[in-house]
Design a binder for these strands. Structure first.
Lengths: 224, 224
DNA sequence: GTCTATATCACGATAGAC
DNA sequence: GTCTATCGTGATATAGAC
């Protein structure tokens, strides 16, 4: 309906295909999307796709890789910024949310890609795009980990488990923006509405800072 | 390989089909699973499935519903328990983790089901199993919300956003156990290994209690 | 680069014997 | 309740004209 639209009329066929495929793969997954539908929405015949991408897997992997690189581009300045680990983590959270909001299908696409690897054909795992995507993922998770580790070592953060904290961050951020109808029913708003995005930023960062417990200054150390 | 196995030889055909389908749908999604494969692994011919389930959609919806009901059965006692909202929330977290760990495919299955609804055929949305599953989901989210609301009203929790906190909880808990290879690479352990599960319980509950910041008793109120 | 036409295959579902 | 056989469809991918 109003979901898939425009996509830019003045771009190259290749970019139009990638844009259409990104939306479709995000909403219905690798196996749920037919190249016929991609071709139609990109304004081409089905066979024309194979002049731009040799296989469906290659198209898929290029979509994933492009999304990861966009996120990296958003997050890198925050990682490189100055200040305490806590301040930088806040900026990373903001940058990650910026990236996901600026590329609406990306949250779902990434969440799906995390557990749809095994339903790609064997051959897809040999594609350079696939390996590059894996590498980019590892690299970003590693950078997040180093930031958290630095925060612990400098005494700014508790002695959290670094990998578990990364998992919680991904869960709290990426999952939220991937949650679609379920999330929108919960928050009674579109996930990408400006106030909803602002609220999400605030809630995630406050949760990271204070947890859920009220007035921990007064009762800290007493509980547990 | 070592993933799909045994499944109980002494159960009814119907239960074997449900068990096999649960594993397969969890790993590859609705469109990624063929009834041929379900039948093979259940030890039946493909056509025999249609004597137990009229359509693939019906099989899928019954798998989802069964999973939701198992989770409800685990979580209900925690919701009904006594004590502060904080204590009950801890028990709910534990119960939810118990449920996900006790039914290994369930985390992925649920995460997938949250955004695979729209790739089911139209007819599936009219199935009683589908409506029951939607109802069960809403009901459980509502119960979580009431618990958090009560914690805020009684002054135990900060004035968090209830729906956003639910989203963070789902993200931190369900996503983690659905994250598969990615999560296992991060934590350097199988997700369901007892120590890994114990660590996850601890990390999630500590994050809810204290956030990430160290020694908030000393610096509370100074930041922001 | 894009098209039409087609090859090949797997899918969900049905019919009907046993 | 399970089977074999089959129908109709839509998938990825290819061949080759324009």
């Amino acid at each position: 309906m109003s979901v898939s639209l425009a996509i830019q009329e003045s771009s190259s066929s290749r970019d139009r295909i990638l844009d259409v495929a990104e939306w479709l793969f995000a909403r219905r997954g690798f196996n749920g999307v037919g190249l016929r539908e991609v071709a139609d929405q990109a304004g081409l015949g089905k066979s024309s796709l194979f002049h731009h991408f040799q296989t469906k897997s290659e198209l898929y992997c290029q979509v994933i890789l492009r999304t990861l690189e966009r996120i990296r581009a958003h997050v890198q300045p925050a990682l490189d910024s100055d200040g305490t680990a806590a301040g930088r983590l806040d900026r990373v959270v903001d940058a990650l949310i910026d990236a996901l909001v600026g590329d609406p299908p990306s949250a779902r696409l990434l969440l799906r890609s995390m557990f749809e690897d095994e339903m790609l054909p064997e051959s897809a795992h040999e594609l350079p795009e696939h390996k590059a995507a894996e590498c980019e993922t590892e690299s970003m998770l590693s950078d997040f980990g180093m930031l958290i580790r630095e925060g612990i070592d400098s005494g700014v953060f508790r002695r959290v488990s670094v990998p578990h904290t990364i998992q919680s961050l991904i869960g709290a951020i990426v999952f939220h923006f991937a949650s679609g109808e379920l999330g929108e029913k919960l928050i009674h708003s579109e996930l990408l509405a400006p106030e909803a995005v602002a609220a999400r930023r605030r809630e995630v960062k406050d949760l990271l800072r204070h947890g859920m417990v009220a007035e921990d200054s007064a009762t800290a150390g007493e509980k547990k």
